[in-house]
Simulated scan of single mutants.
Amino acid sequence: MNIYQKLFKLILAGNTNIPAMINAIIGATLQVRSDSKNSDLTFRQVHIFHSEQSLQALTISVAWQKALSNHKISSTSLVHHVTKIEDSNVDRFRDLVEQLGTIVNPLDNPQNYIDLTSGISSLKSILAVFAYVLDIENIYSLEIDFSKDPDTRKKQASLFYDELEKAGVSIKYRKFPPIKKFDTFGKLNYTEVLRHRSNINDLVNCLTNLLPSGLDIEHLRESLLSGVNSSLIGEITE
């Protein structure tokens, strides 16, 4: 493995539909080879965040290993994580964030790819936010033009990448628009206003039962928000 190859890692959500998950890995690998102009390049690590069901489905299947090897992708590059983020448990969410933090180091590992093709929606949302926070621009999703006929579509959904191509099914690996454009909101202080609004609402709600009944609580709320707005305008205009 050369030094250049060590820079590349892929992060994606698991899927109980094993061909869909493996096809995403193949699509990402073909993309990184195209980006790097290196036809032999593979990800040093492919981090898959499984549900218990998707990990079990992977362990009882063997055909996926051949599908990967057809593209010179070693199954030993797969790193498996198990998460129960769908339980909405704070500790599990914290654990997921910590796991992501051990994978990506923006100082010495800038070539990270995130695939949002499949998996539960909450996990994909977390990966998208994670990509935004670390300014990861390589965010992709595999788009397959399945047949509209239910029976044909079901059969196609069980096919691996090469089989889909042989069947003439259109496969595209699309890059997401640059989500760092959301920084514009931060530069305009929109995000700061929203955070102050939340804090002020919490404060006013706490004071409601403590202040005299004749006091206009809404006037207090608006006055505080007006003060915040004036402060931000002062910072922008100096």
Rank of each mutant, 00 (worst) to 15 (best):
F176Q: 03
G186R: 09
R197D: 03
V193H: 02
C206T: 14
N189W: 00
E192T: 06
L203N: 08
N205P: 02
G186A: 08
T191R: 05
D202Q: 12
F176D: 01
T184F: 08
T184K: 10
I200K: 00
N201Y: 08
I179V: 15
P178I: 03
D183I: 01
S198I: 08
V204W: 00
N209W: 06
P177A: 14
Y190S: 02
Y190R: 02
I179T: 09
L207W: 10
S198M: 11
Y190A: 03
P178G: 07
N199H: 11
K187Q: 12
T191I: 09
V204K: 01
N209E: 15
H196C: 06
D202H: 10
R197P: 00
E192Y: 02
D183E: 12
L207E: 07
S198V: 08
L203S: 09
T191V: 08
N189S: 06
T208H: 13
L211N: 05
Y190L: 10
N201K: 12
L211E: 05
F182V: 08
T184E: 13
L188T: 02
N201M: 10
E192V: 02
D183A: 05
G186H: 05
T191L: 09
I179L: 15
N189M: 03
L211C: 06
N199G: 02
N199A: 14
R197M: 10
N209L: 10
N189A: 03
S198G: 06
L211F: 11
K181P: 00
K187T: 06
F182I: 12
V193I: 13
T184M: 07
Y190V: 10
